[in-house]
């Protein structure tokens, strides 16, 4: 058998990964390295930064310079790396809890600054690692250990949040739409500025079992049947949208990138001193 080219981006002695049978995280991790390969990013100029959670474990399997940081703090660490060496390609891996609960402020301010990071949010709609507590992205009426009768908290739409906060690129895909997901990430990598990609993933263990979808394949079929490509979504009447959600590129715009703006400040401050 011809060894697959993406295998070189994994720390082989760390596989198999720790994720549950059928967990979608493995699929998204592969999509990221395939996007890296597609964009021909040199491995020694690419840094992977993650927070804390099942999803954030991904950095441990990826053969780059990697940083597994504190819960919610991946974006601040990544900001430091990018500012210290703007030549680096910095990819952030985060979960829905990591990014929108404890790390919510870091997330919106990263977008506001428009720093050139590619942030991939693995959205399993729950706190997986700690046993299934509701996150700010748990859908309304879905169950969690902290919401045994269904969540009454309205969920964040992280894509809308990133857009409103000032991101340069915002997209969504799922662990079912593997090639589409890879394309969404690859495009985010090429955009200069804050790129945000939400990858909806199946978590059969913490989310599925609580919500009558314990089988991984069942959850993937749900993703297939409920994700709607942006163009079709725009034509879909309101009453047919109910539990469906759009995927695709929602936003792409140009705005001055943060490390560039900062370099100008440094240049003029140093110039002024002489």
């Amino acid at each position: 058998m011809q060894e697959r080219t993406y295998e070189k981006y994994f720390r082989q002695n760390r596989l198999p990964h720790i994720w549950c049978p059928g967990c979608g995280n493995g699929t998204v991790m592969k999509a990221i390295v395939e996007a890296v390969e597609k964009r021909k990013l040199p491995r020694d100029k690419t840094v992977i930064v993650s927070g804390i959670g099942c999803s954030s474990r991904a950095s441990g399997y990826m053969d780059f310079d990697t940083l597994h940081t504190a819960h919610g703090r991946a974006i601040p660490f990544a900001t430091g790396i990018k500012l210290a060496n703007p030549e680096l390609n910095v990819i952030v891996i985060t979960g829905d809890g990591d990014c929108t609960a404890i790390g919510g402020n870091h997330f919106i301010h990263g977008a506001r600054r428009n720093i050139d990071l590619t942030v991939v949010l693995f959205n399993n709609a729950i706190y997986g690692m700690t046993g299934g507590q509701a996150s700010p992205m748990t859908p309304l009426h879905k169950k969690a250990t902290t919401a045994p009768y269904g969540s009454v908290d309205r969920p964040f739409d992280a894509c809308q949040l990133a857009s409103a906060a000032g991101a340069s690129y915002v997209a969504r895909s799922t662990a079912f739409h593997v090639q589409h997901l890879t394309d969404m990430i690859a495009e985010g990598i090429s955009v200069e500025g804050f790129s945000f990609i939400e990858a909806v993933v199946q978590c059969p263990t913490a989310y599925g079992r609580k919500n009558k979808m314990p089988e991984p394949a069942q959850m993937m079929a749900w993703l297939r049947d409920h994700a709607v490509l942006q163009k079709a979504w725009d034509k879909l009447p309101e009453e047919k949208r109910s539990d469906k959600f759009p995927i695709g590129v929602f936003l792409k715009r140009q705005f001055e990138e943060y490390t560039k703006a900062y370099a100008e400040v440094i240049a003029s401050a140093q110039g002024g001193k002489k």
């Binding site: 596989l15 549950c20 049978p21 059928g22 394949a217 993937m220």
Partner: peptide, 13 residues
């Protein structure tokens, strides 16, 4: 096989 966790996704699809 040392990587396979028997999730059944391949079987189903």
């Amino acid at each position: 096989s040392e990587r396979c966790k028997g999730c059944g996704i391949c079987v189903a699809f």
